[in-house]
């Protein structure tokens, strides 16, 4: 394995986790690379993004978890709880988070992980979401009173929504190719009346779900609207 296999990605999420100035992360795509990156000591690197969508939590080794930099795992699923319970302590460490696809199973796994105190998030873009399940998970993240760890992108939206003037794009909370970020929300102006700009939830989505639009419609619209409602609820609750 060589560093040539690594990609540097911007990591605003790692920055938010660590509370340190923005740093970049290494993106690795194999367990061997992850193991090596976990042993790396480089002050310029804020974290590791392990992009391993064919793996589940039981497939990881103890050596996969770095001592210092943050670790974000993009996996295909969590697997059986009993099979990864030995890794729970490592998974719950600050800086470690698990991202899963928004399939029914992935969403069920995310709810379990969150309730166990593991920071987690939805990995958009690879699977078509089950929108109803996703909305249920959103309601769990926003309304449930039992302790649970944050779930992205809900945590980003709920933390940053400041009222009607807000125009958020949760891609700001995800890793992306170095130097490439989402376009500013105002750029949607030039496009006129689109499925995104005319969506009630646009101000908390900013087009992050536009990949799911089709000539038949906008299946993400109700979910984005629900996300706005939860953002308003959290904002109001925090300002009582």
């Amino acid at each position: 394995m060589t560093r040539n296999n690594w990609t540097i990605v911007d990591s605003p999420l790692a920055w938010r986790i660590q509370g340190e100035p923005a740093k970049r992360a290494i993106r690795v795509t194999s367990l061997a690379d992850l193991r090596e990156a976990a042993g790396l000591e480089d002050p310029e690197i804020g974290g590791i993004l392990a992009d391993l969508p064919w793996l589940r939590l039981p497939d990881l080794e103890a050596a996969s978890f770095p001592a210092k930099p943050s670790l974000t795992l993009y996996l295909g699923g969590a697997g059986e709880l009993l099979a990864y319970s030995d890794k729970l302590a490592a998974l719950k460490r600050p800086g470690v988070s698990v991202f899963l696809p928004p399939t029914r199973q992935g969403i069920t796994d995310l709810r379990i992980l969150s309730s166990l105190g593991v920071r987690c998030g939805i990995l958009f873009g690879r699977e078509v979401p089950d929108w109803d399940f996703l909305t249920d998970l959103l309601c769990y993240a926003a309304y449930t009173k039992t302790p649970h760890a944050w779930i992205e992108p809900f945590a980003y939206v709920h933390a940053n929504y400041k009222g009607p003037s807000s125009q958020l794009d949760w891609r700001d909370a995800y890793f992306r190719d170095a130097g490439r970020g989402p376009t500013a929300p105002e750029d949607a102006f030039g496009g006129g009346l689109t499925a995104c700009t005319s969506c009630p939830g646009w101000r908390v989505c900013g087009g992050a779900l536009s990949a799911y639009l089709s000539p038949e419609g906008a299946p993400c619209r109700e979910f984005a609207s629900a996300l706005l409602e939860t953002a308003e609820y959290v904002h109001a609750k925090n300002n009582i």
């Binding site: 009607p164 003037s165 125009q167 105002e186 102006f189 009346l193 700009t197 005319s198 646009w202 101000r203």
Partner: peptide, 10 residues
Amino acid sequence: ELFYALTNFY
């Protein structure tokens, strides 16, 4: 659609 487009840029 216009209402949402206009208010989204509040």
